[in-house]
Amino acid sequence: MAQNFAHGNYSHTQRKVRKGAGGRTPRDRARRELSQNFLVDRHAVETLVEAARPAGLVIEPGAGAGVLTMALARAGAEVVGYEIDPLLVAGLRARTDLKIVKGDFTRARPPDRPFAVVGSIPYSITSKIVDWCLNAQRLTSATLVTQLEYARKRSGDFGRWSLVTVKSWPWFRWEILGRIDRESFRPVPSVDSAILRIERRSTPLVGDAAAWEELVELGFSGVGGSLYASLSRRYGEAGEAFDRARVARDVVVAFVHPDQWISLFTSLHRGEQR
């Protein structure tokens, strides 16, 4: 159970009823629409900061009440917080001299110098935030609190691998660095969360990004019922490449590890160049 709440107890918003308002106050409805579940447990915040290893410029999407914002600043980072809720922006600006930007993080232009993203992000726009991070050329890492299921799917923790993870694998590592109980948030969400870290590799694992994307998209097309059947449509007899990568010819695409994809790509494109 969460203890040492840094910013009050928001649980009253889950039970406060106002007649004629559908059981929720206007502030409750705003929190629901903005997917606001604030990380308030100090231990969880410290765990997130430790996982992020903040240094230099750090951008925080969804600064909320500022608990994580100020923890990142105390750790020595140059923090820029983004928050779309004007009431929260006003409160943060009144309490700190850190840079707080009122607006939608996913519409922001990425910095033109190296930076990291750290945040306990709104669940409803997790995919948009992750896509923004993956497309930001100077991003070094993204350490994000997401729904546990999302983090497990993207990191391969279920023993399966998603298209997003495989497509970005030559440039980014994906891993879970901790689980956060739902009681660490106010209001309390219905599911647990996890710390998902996406870290840019110092050297990409493939050189031809367009060819890699073509291979992965074809592999995930689902035509033929297996990865081998899908790739054989483009690469002819791919058996030798599958043998090198130790991938069975009847395996479904989701169960192929990203490192095996790298092996397949290397073998198939070496064959094309002969």
Rank of each mutant, 00 (worst) to 15 (best):
A77N: 06
S221W: 09
D157W: 04
T69G: 02
E217W: 14
L87P: 06
T69M: 04
V101M: 05
H12S: 15
N135Y: 08
R154L: 15
V188S: 03
R249V: 01
T47A: 15
S168V: 00
S221R: 06
D28R: 14
L87T: 07
D192P: 08
T25E: 01
V251D: 11
F5A: 05
Y150V: 04
D131G: 06
L34D: 01
T106R: 03
D181I: 04
E213K: 12
T25L: 05
V191R: 10
S263C: 15
R138D: 05
T47G: 15
D112T: 07
R31P: 07
D208I: 03
S162R: 10
K167V: 11
T143P: 08
S124F: 11
S232F: 06
G222R: 11
M70S: 09
P111S: 08
L215Q: 10
F5N: 06
E149C: 11
A21E: 14
G119Q: 02
R274D: 11
N135H: 05
Y228C: 13
P258K: 05
K99F: 08
I59M: 12
G23F: 02
R107E: 14
V253I: 03
R42K: 10
I84R: 03
D250K: 12
R74N: 04
V40D: 05
R42N: 08
S155C: 01
S202L: 12
V118K: 02
L264N: 10
I59R: 13
G22C: 07
A75I: 00
S202Y: 01
L139G: 00
R173H: 14
W132Q: 01
L231M: 09
W174D: 02
E240L: 14
A51C: 08
S127G: 08
W261S: 02
W174A: 07
I195T: 03
R24P: 08
G178V: 00
V45S: 04
V216N: 12
R201M: 07
C133Y: 02
A30D: 08
L163Y: 12
E33W: 13
L144Q: 05
L163S: 11
Y123I: 00
A209N: 05
A245K: 10
R152P: 08
L88M: 13
S124P: 04
A65Y: 09
S184F: 10
R274Q: 13
L144I: 02
E175K: 04
G91L: 05
H7I: 06
P114H: 09
